[in-house]
């Protein structure tokens, strides 16, 4: 995975009010910590970070006051509508460090079981791995073309690149092909049966009929 450069500035204005002002000006408040060194508050441009995200980068080279620092993107906070990045956590790393992170899993091919009428269920869309910083894969590609109905792929079945090992349990399910579920349309009678059942209320409370009289 290519390591992208991300220019950052140190930030001395802290707190939610200042952070809001940064966001309004097209900047994203960030923080850098790790390796026993002091925590530093930073900010970066929203456009620059959007470029990093579009390339699915896990590690960036932060350019701070003329010095370069390799950092892992540990956490990204989004606004409630998922449109804008609110805050980023960076962790200092060196190229030979081993880090724990989630890698997205992508599937190739249509399973033979799906062609025969089965349903492909991707239970996990990412896998937690321990990886060396210089060997972090951008994705894990799984060829699922040979899967028949009832076949499964577990975390232990995946071939990982060099310097990458799984952090999830070996028998964690990633994808399987199952029999299709039959659609059961509810009849009118079944719907009416459900209407009558009232939930159990407060036992001490007076009934509605009492209060209406």
């Amino acid at each position: 995975m290519e390591i992208l450069d991300l220019p950052v500035q140190s930030r001395d204005k802290l707190g939610s009010a200042h952070s809001r002002r940064f966001r309004r000006a097209g900047r994203i408040p960030c923080v850098l910590y790790g390796r026993g060194q002091d925590t530093v508050s930073l900010d970066t441009s929203a456009d620059g970070f959007a470029n990093v995200q579009s390339q699915h980068a896990a590690v960036v080279r932060l350019e701070l006051d003329g010095k370069a620092q390799t950092a892992l993107i540990r956490a990204v906070q989004w606004d409630p509508f998922g449109d804008f990045v609110q805050h980023i956590d960076f962790v200092r790393v060196e190229m030979e460090d081993e880090v724990k992170l989630s890698i997205p899993v992508h599937f190739t091919g249509t399973p033979a079981g799906a062609v025969a009428g089965g349903v492909t269920q991707a239970v996990r869309t990412d896998v937690e791995v321990f990886a060396r910083v210089d060997s972090i894969p951008s994705e894990i590609l799984l060829d699922i073309e040979a899967l028949e109905i009832g076949d499964t792929i577990y975390v232990e079945d995946v071939e990982y690149p060099d310097n990458v090992r799984p952090a999830s349990l070996p028998r964690d399910l990633i994808v399987h092909v199952v029999e299709p579920k039959k659609i059961e349309e509810e009849t009118e009678e079944e719907l009416e049966e459900g209407e009558g059942a009232a939930p159990e209320g407060d036992p001490d409370a007076k009934s509605d009929s009492d209060s209406d009289s």
Binding site: E186, E190, L191, E193, G194, E195, A197, P199, E200, G201, D202, A205, D208
Partner: peptide
């Protein structure tokens, strides 16, 4: 069948 709570702490 529509969703509804099994029991309520307060009725209204």
């Amino acid at each position: 069948m529509s969703l509804m709570p099994k029991r309520l702490k307060w009725r209204k």
